[in-house]
């Protein structure tokens, strides 16, 4: 138990990230939970990663707001239309 309690923030942050990607073995998961239960700063870090994940999902949707009004150029549109016409 004392070994579990001695987990530092430095040990914990990679585990927080790793747990977002796949399951951790029970021992690691337990150490992570115990540390997060005591450490508000690492909780903040965990929340930040969750915010980044939520933003990414929004950005990936087909209704995402985009920073630039990115669009195909008129030239590109003509080229694609031509290509489609030729192969139809």
């Amino acid at each position: 138990m004392s070994r579990m309690l001695r987990v530092t923030c430095e040990d914990t942050t990679p585990l927080i990230s790793e747990l977002m990607d796949h399951n951790l073995p029970l021992g690691k998961r337990l150490r992570l939970r115990i540390h997060l239960g005591m450490c508000g700063v690492c909780k903040i870090y965990e929340k930040q990663l969750e915010v980044i994940r939520a933003l990414s999902q929004k950005l990936g949707g087909d209704d995402a707001p985009t920073q630039k009004d990115a669009a195909l150029s008129d030239q590109a549109k003509i080229k694609i239309k031509e290509t489609l016409k030729q192969s139809n």
Binding site: V41, I44, Y45, K47, Q48, E50, V51, R53, A54
Partner: peptide, 8 residues
């Protein structure tokens, strides 16, 4: 780390 004070 700063508290971003927003939920996901």
């Amino acid at each position: 780390p700063k508290n971003w004070a927003t939920d996901p």
